[in-house]
Amino acid sequence: MAVWAAFTVVGGLVALLAGAYGLDRTRRVTEAGVWAEALVKAVRQGADRPALQFETADGQVVEVPSPVPVSRRRPLRAGQRVPIAYDADDPREVVLLGRERRGLDWTFVGAGAGLVLAGLVLVVVV
Rank of each mutant, 00 (worst) to 15 (best):
I84N: 02
A6V: 12
Q60F: 10
V70W: 01
A15V: 07
R72E: 14
Q60A: 13
G103V: 12
L39M: 06
A42N: 07
V124T: 07
G22A: 14
P83M: 04
K41V: 04
R77L: 15
P50Y: 01
A111H: 09
G46P: 04
A6P: 00
V94A: 02
Y86S: 02
Y21N: 12
Y21T: 10
F7H: 11
T26F: 06
L115S: 05
D90W: 08
L97A: 09
A32F: 13
L76E: 00
R102W: 09
Q80N: 01
V95C: 05
S71K: 03
V62A: 06
D48K: 07
A88I: 03
P50R: 00
E63R: 10
P91I: 08
T56A: 05
D89E: 15
A32E: 15
V116L: 01
V125A: 14
R25Q: 13
L120K: 08
L115G: 06
V62E: 07
E37S: 10
Q45W: 13
L23V: 09
A42Y: 01
A118S: 09
T8G: 05
D90I: 03
F108N: 11
G110H: 10
R27F: 11
D89N: 10
F54T: 04
F108P: 01
Y21W: 15
V34R: 15
R49K: 11
A88T: 01
T56S: 06
G46K: 05
T107Q: 12
R25P: 00
P65M: 14
V40H: 00
W4L: 14
L117G: 11
A20H: 02
L17F: 14
A88P: 03
F54N: 06
T30M: 10
L97S: 05
T26A: 07
F7I: 14
G46E: 07
R44F: 08
A5W: 06
L13G: 12
T8M: 14
D58Q: 12
G112C: 02
V10T: 09
P75R: 06
Y86C: 00
V116W: 09
K41F: 05
P65H: 11
R73S: 12
A51I: 01
L117V: 14
L122H: 12
V124M: 12
V123G: 09
L76M: 00
P91T: 05
R73L: 14
I84L: 03
L76V: 00
A5Y: 10
V121S: 04
Q53A: 13
R44L: 12
T30Q: 10
G22Y: 03
G98C: 02
V64G: 08
R27V: 04
L104Q: 10
V9C: 08
A113F: 10
R49S: 07
I84V: 06
V68E: 05
V109S: 03
S66R: 02
P50F: 02
T107A: 15
G112W: 03
R25L: 13
P69T: 04
A6L: 11
R99K: 08
R81D: 10
D90R: 13
P75T: 01
L96I: 02
S66K: 07
L122P: 01
L115F: 14
L52M: 05
V70L: 00
V9M: 09
L52K: 05
A6M: 09
G114Q: 02
A2P: 11
V3Y: 15
A32G: 09
G112H: 07
L96A: 02
S66E: 02
V10A: 13
F7L: 15
V3G: 11
L115E: 00
A36R: 09
A51M: 13
L13M: 14
